[in-house]
């Protein structure tokens, strides 16, 4: 585990429905959801924070927050939306703490994915992943949520706490940057704007 204790990001608390209704006891339903979604939640966090211990912390805190708000969800289908946003918020907090606590650390010594992990990706994927990792945080979030989590613009906007228009423009910039770095067929970066 990481030596970083995660706390909820108070600046951007995940949303809960205004009209909370009494719900079933959290126990079995929550536990079942946890078992089903733990792996995918860690993966999403991993793509945002780079290192697995932090990702597991972020995922754990997301589920902890979900459990705290379980009775306010009203609708079980809201749970995934809550998790998405909680992971995005948790990842931002983790990265902010990392910048603060380890500001002195040489850039090449930051807790990036281990070399052994990257080696397993292969050249092509490693190059693409490195390009995604080099994006500004918000662009990276959009790319991960849109192209790995397969969220639509509305869901991405909700997870990130921004508008759909911002999602669209951020995605444009991100893909243009990836084009410039990776090259690729067809559309030029200029054509995206």
């Amino acid at each position: 585990m990481s030596a970083v204790a995660n706390t909820q990001d108070d600046e951007h608390p995940p949303p809960v429905p205004a009209s909370a209704v009494p719900a079933e006891p959290a126990g079995p339903a929550f536990d079942e959801l946890f078992v089903q979604r733990w792996g995918a939640t860690v993966q999403l966090a991993l793509l945002l924070v780079d290192d697995e211990p932090s990702a597991e912390d972020v995922a754990q805190e997301a589920f902890t927050g979900l459990l705290r708000h379980w009775h306010q969800l009203g609708d079980l289908s809201r749970a995934q939306s809550y998790l998405n946003r909680a992971v995005v918020n948790g990842a931002r907090s983790a990265l902010r703490r990392r910048r603060t606590a380890r500001a002195w650390t040489p850039p090449h010594a930051t807790p990036d994915p281990s070399a052994e992990e990257l080696a397993l990706l292969g050249d092509e994927r490693r190059e693409v992943f490195a390009a995604v990792a080099a994006l500004p945080l918000r662009q990276r979030e959009v790319v991960v949520l849109r192209y790995w989590s397969q969220l639509d613009e509305a869901a991405t906007a909700e997870a990130m706490g921004i508008t759909r228009g911002t999602v669209k423009s951020t995605a444009h910039k991100a893909m243009a940057a990836l084009h410039r770095r990776l090259g690729g067929p067809s559309t030029s970066a200029g054509g995206l704007r």
Binding site: W38, Q43, L46, L47, E117, F129, V132, V144, W148
Partner: peptide, 11 residues
């Protein structure tokens, strides 16, 4: 690439 990276998690 993201999928491959995510799949490397050992959690």
């Amino acid at each position: 690439a993201l999928g491959a990276r995510a799949a490397l998690t050992t959690t």
